[in-house]
Design a binder for these strands. Structure first.
Lengths: 337, 337
DNA sequence: TTGAAAGCGCTAACAA
DNA sequence: TTGTTAGCGCTTTCAA
């Protein structure tokens, strides 16, 4: 691997000082009143010979790595991967590189990737938190690291949060089933902090109708087959159930599988899913789903983080919680058939 | 943001020299014959006070960033996200951070992210290439950058490649339809280099039976609705078609949607999809699919890259092509109904 | 308008 | 066995 040219080499070749070269390289030529000709000469030469400054040297010197660390539950979850790719696009344009890491919804894993990314000098964080991580986040905040919390958040933590209205979404979804004539609505969810609001939304509606809640809260760690089994026994052992509201996409998949295996009368159960999916439209019946405004979420996250990162912005970005509405996409699965 | 302690600060606090400290920090205590007591003292102190060396300084000094750059077509594609997350897990354990970037199958985008990651001093690359990128890869190779090519590769390029047997997979899938009685088998694919072998596999089988090929090659840039429309008109304008083989997951989704919209006799078409999907099992009929051994692929990629990166390995890793078999998961969609 | 030089935090050759 | 110190490549203050 041949050694790369350093700024000194190039300065030498060009017969200018490193200072001058550095200024021009960073677009500060004007500001520093370097002569037009020199600027031109340098820029042309750079373009021709293709010199690229070493990022590490720059980062070490400036203390900025131009890198953003993002921590999600699981990059295989389409919600996260879509948010991540939306963020990546905008970040790239702004000169930032995005590093995405998965916590697998495991506290120690999350702590260690936060530490890892912090040690790697990421300039800012984008985090989908899990229960138990409050302190780590508080520390990060105390350190002064810019960060955005998304998907769910800790009200006590005074961070900048970007979420959707999970509670209302779940409430409306449940109401929708109710209005379509379902009276025994089960709710299948995960034991994750991020599900808290959805559980509340469901519970609120059910209780507002003096009905009984019926919640299955599954451990996150289960694999697909285990989920199918758990759901199957939940459904069969609650024989009065006429409909189910699934709290995440992955659960819906498991649930659909369970129901399709059961067949018979179960095939007529009402179904709503939190999070939409391309295939829901193709299924028969189509699956009614709550859709999150992914594009908006990702754009909002990265734009706010970028302005936190932008030191020129003299006005500090105040902590706040931005909440997007969700949309109920009605398909056949939520009506009596 | 309070300034972090440097190795000098810590050395001072500990009353040892930076060298000693640095050696111990890098686990070279034994090797450098630092006294047991000093090593212990340092390690304890570090643990208590939580000092973490600055990666940038280290990288600048060693010339190694302990970072791997991965370039995929689109991180939202489940195949890529699964491979990426498998790689990430192993890389993390080996002390490497993975940066995943999407090329969106766009040549300039791919060139620019390769350049970006290279400027960021990634130690190695993992790349799913597209047509036109040969030269860039050749340059990278000339530079001596360790890299692994996956998904598809350029036979002329003498790189380390990890792929599945696309040709055979496509051949067998087509044969499977044929053996189930279908005679007018269409093939719907994308205008991507990665599809080349699949097209060949399909074509080879069809021609081996003296049948006519019927291929729809769609531009990658199309969105979901456009794909549905193109597929719809392909199907309706080729009225003799009795079955379709979809070359990627995303096309299958579009195709299923198109077929479900068309309804009627089209609902009985034979269908096979390249790449499996959780939901294929839930659909009615279940979708027959070719499954790639994702876990094996990701493990193989990262393990080989790691050994290329490991300078202790005196034996160089020779360029070669590792080809995994694929598996045909037979479901109802590929039989006459 | 340009140049010299001191750092940024770490590694490692060399000296002691 | 430990300490001194010269880089790694870049930015930026200060001086000219």
């Amino acid at each position: 691997m041949k050694k790369k040219r350093s700024i000194y080499d190039v300065a030498n070749e060009l017969q200018v000082s490193v200072t001058t070269l550095s200024f021009v390289l960073n677009g500060k030529g004007q500001e520093k009143r370097i002569s037009k000709e020199v600027i031109q000469k340098i820029e042309n030469y750079i373009k021709e010979t293709g010199y690229q400054p070493n990022h590490l040297g720059r980062s070490l010197s400036t203390g900025k790595s131009k890198t953003i660390g993002m921590i999600v539950g699981d990059i295989n979850n389409p919600f996260f991967s879509e948010v991540a790719s939306g963020i990546e696009k905008i970040a790239l344009k702004a000169g930032y590189t995005l590093i995405v890491a998965s916590s697998n919804n495991e506290l120690n894993q999350m702590k260690s990737v936060i530490k890892l990314l912090n040690d790697r000098n990421v300039d800012g964080f984008i985090i989908s938190p899990i229960a138990g991580i409050e302190e780590t986040l508080a520390d990060l905040k105390k350190e002064g690291k810019p960060m955005i919390i998304f998907n769910c958040f800790f009200p006590d933590l005074n961070t900048f949060n970007i979420v959707v209205d999970n509670k209302k979404g779940a409430f409306e979804a449940t109401r929708h089933l109710y209005e379509n004539g379902f009276r025994n609505i089960g709710f299948i969810t995960l034991n994750l902090y991020s599900q808290k609001e959805r559980i509340e939304g469901y519970t609120n509606f059910i209780e507002s109708q003096q009905l009984n809640t019926n919640i299955l809260k599954l451990p996150y760690e289960l694999n697909y087959e285990q989920i199918i089994n758990k759901i199957t026994s939940f459904i069969t052992s609650n024989d009065e159930l006429d409909s189910v509201f699934f709290s995440t996409n992955f659960l819906t998949l498991g649930g659909l599988k369970a129901i399709s295996r059961l067949g018979g009368k179960y095939a007529k159960m009402g179904i709503v899913s939190f999070d939409d999916h391309l295939l829901y439209d193709v299924l028969n019946p189509g699956i009614t789903a709550i859709k999150q405004p992914v594009k908006q979420i990702s754009a909002t996250i990265i734009n706010h983080l970028l302005s936190m990162l932008d030191k020129d912005a003299d006005k500090k970005v105040e902590p706040q919680t931005i909440m997007f509405p969700v949309e109920l996409i009605v398909r056949a699965s939520s009506s009596k058939r």
